[in-house]
Design a protein around this nucleic acid. Structure first.
Length: 207
DNA sequence: CGACGGATGGGCT
DNA sequence: GCCCATCCGTCGG
């Protein structure tokens, strides 16, 4: 099987199964390569935390398209973040590229990130895009194609952990964040201050 | 290292 | 208007 077929097969399943398998994969663009260490899964209708939850809009159109495309959006008016679209066409699911380690092009990445330390170059979704030189103009780019940003399969990490997604007000407890255990480039977890209180009820005897 | 608050402007009700 | 899938500086331990 070719690497390209590997990648298409990798992106085809349910988003919460695809997301952890993207850990260890590489994203390359404009002279910089990042090895993914932290991602988050976002579904569609059944996921209140997803941009696609309330249907098709101008911003989230790419999510409703074919898998293997890059969905870029503007966060807090200033920061660009990027996702990989997954699943069958129209399923509107995607995996947020939350953090990674710069493994090539460190000089270029450091310039784009205004002298940040190695660990912080791509530690956070907007930082990762900045290090890679990704902007809104890359929304819809085909990651499986020959030009522009590319995604390549890489060795899976030895241990993966999961927990709630960062910063959400809706579905703040769904454990759809996945990261490489022990990786220093994983971003710190922060719960949205506006999210409902954590569901701390022991649901049947946990200690 | 963890916690907190302000900046910021497009997207959507 | 209100809402944010964030970042960065600045606290305190």
């Amino acid at each position: 099987m070719t690497a390209l077929e590997d990648l298409r097969a990798l992106l085809a399943g349910p988003v919460e199964e695809v997301a952890p398998r993207l850990l260890g994969c590489r994203v390359e663009h404009a002279g910089v390569t990042v090895r993914l260490t932290e991602v988050e899964a976002y579904g569609a209708g059944g996921d209140p935390g997803s941009h696609a939850h309330r249907g098709h809009t101008r911003r989230n159109g790419t999510m409703f398209g074919p898998p293997g495309r890059l969905y870029c959006y503007l966060s807090y008016g200033v920061h660009v973040c990027a996702n990989v679209v997954t699943g069958p066409d129209g399923s509107a699911s995607a995996v947020l590229l939350r953090a990674g380690e710069v493994v090539a092009g460190e000089g270029t990445a450091t310039e784009r990130r205004r002298g940040a330390r190695h660990r912080d170059l791509a530690r956070g979704p907007a930082r990762l895009c900045q290090a890679l030189g990704l902007g809104l103009d890359h929304d819809g780019a085909d990651l499986v194609g020959c030009a522009g940003p590319r995604l390549r399969v890489g060795p899976a990490p030895s241990a993966v952990r999961s927990g709630p997604r960062v910063g959400l007000t809706a579905a703040p407890d769904r454990p759809w964040r996945f990261w490489e255990d022990g990786a220093p480039t994983v971003s710190p977890y922060r719960r949205s201050p506006r999210a409902a209180a954590p569901d701390s009820r022991p649901s049947g005897g946990g200690c």
